[in-house]
Nucleic acid binder design. Structure first.
Lengths: 267, 267
DNA sequence: GAGTGGTCTAGACCACGTT
DNA sequence: ACGTGGTCTAGACCACTCA
């Protein structure tokens, strides 16, 4: 797509002008393909320079006005292209300094680069077998987790989730009773908790934070999930918040590790 | 921040004009605070309408020109505000149709909404104890995984990683020998594999895909990590690709589950 | 002071979906 | 035909960084 080499820093550096290099793009025009957004073509072109190693990590990109001239586009279009590369984590803008190629984050430490994850496995059946659904006074520990006063009324829920009729997970949930004064056993057998909260109580859930540990099936899990005592499980701890950021549910769950796994794409 | 209610669909609907509602924002001006980008203030204001439930999931936002008029900004600024909400997953634009509030994805099934994850735990020491570093002919299975012909030369690496001098993970790696003809035992004891690949062989790593399962320490792990036979571990399977998308390393690892956990933020 | 990126405007034309 | 969002322009002024 690119008909001419991109400008180097030297091409536009007034301190050390290199006429030869500058002459490498004399009156160069960017050969844009129709029906493809310009910003996208530019982004791809710049990205190729990163992949090819011509613009290595730490490299300072030519300033925006130089790239505008090179590609023959307005600054808005150029900034959209570079902005997409920024949000994908490939380049970094520093106000007053310039735009730089990021260091690859992969494997640089324990802190994983983010990307996206998903749980891999067969879909859970809707509803659950409700082992317990009790309104109790919060013990100090759980009150602390939920951010409530000790003895505040809470709902304590224990459910077994199924996949194709087979039990695969046990979930213990704690919810402030103020959020949903009269939870119904029956409703939860066929509906997601999130749906009951929304439709019955007008509670909308927003973000959640989940911690995942490896574990081994204990007696409780063995009994309810019908697995052997050495089956590996995921121990999942989740805090779910309402859209106005109140803690709506604290949940601990065990999920069969022989049926489910996590998949994470790293950059 | 908002001095007047945002326009409703009715306010700008030519089919069903509601003069009363329209009069609710007569000559309304958006009270912008200085030193905060306009697009950011607008984004926050619109976001509040989502959180408050005034614009519920599925709701069609007023058209851009109406929002421009309401906030008294140009279309570029308005689009930047809405665009940020789009990339955060709160609203969705449909060309020719309009802009709509997204349905909350949380808990709607087994497929997790993505957000970001990180490994939680103390940082790994650089380098590793290299148990094995052998150049061998690929067995059919591993050749298949690496996308090589059977008997193609590969490097087979076994390393123990440490944290504060204590062994916490075992990693078995397979790499096409073509990528790095003469891997050095010594170099790997003090440097990250990724650094050796880059600095010695000019191989740059890009994306990676990781699968995570729960497991229990086996004899091999017990011996090298010094844990008891029932310690839960993460079984991590990772394929790492070069920036030009060739498979550079296939790795299986076991990581002490009593020291590390995953943290995932869901939307 | 010179150069960089950050923000913002007021237009324009287009592609798409609905009516 | 009309209204929607998608793209793009050619300016402008500002804040920040560095020499």
């Amino acid at each position: 797509m690119l008909k001419s080499p991109l400008p180097t820093r030297d091409d536009i550096d007034p301190v050390a002008p290199t006429p030869g290099a500058a002459a490498a793009t004399p009156g160069a025009r960017f050969a844009a393909r129709p029906d493809i957004p310009l910003y996208y073509q530019i982004k791809e072109d710049v990205f190729l320079h990163l992949r090819s190693g011509q613009w290595p990590p730490g490299f300072e990109l030519p300033p925006e006005h130089a790239l505008c001239a090179h590609y023959g586009v307005s600054r808005g279009t150029l900034r959209r292209a570079i902005g997409d590369l920024v949000s994908e984590g490939f380049v970094e803008r520093r106000r007053g300094r310039g735009t730089f190629v990021c260091q690859p984050k992969l494997e640089s430490g324990v802190e994983g680069s983010y990307r996206r994850f998903r749980m891999i496995g067969p879909p859970l059946d809707p509803g659950a077998r409700v082992l317990a659904c009790e309104r109790v006074a919060a013990l100090p520990d759980i009150a602390g987790v939920l951010g409530l006063a000790p003895d505040a009324p809470i709902w304590q829920l224990e459910r077994v989730r199924h996949t194709r009729g087979e039990p695969v997970a046990i979930q213990t949930s704690y919810l402030p009773a103020a959020l949903c004064p009269d939870l119904d056993h029956q409703a939860l057998q066929h509906r997601h908790l999130v749906d009951v909260l929304r439709d019955v109580y007008g509670v909308r859930l927003g973000r959640a934070v989940e911690y995942i540990d490896p574990g081994v099936a204990d007696r409780h899990i063995v009994r309810h999930l019908g697995v052997t005592p050495t089956t590996p499980v995921f121990r999942i701890e989740r805090s779910t918040y309402t859209i106005d950021n109140r803690l709506a549910e604290y949940r601990r769950a065990s999920l069969r590790g022989d049926l489910y796994r996590y998949r994470i794409e790293l950059r």
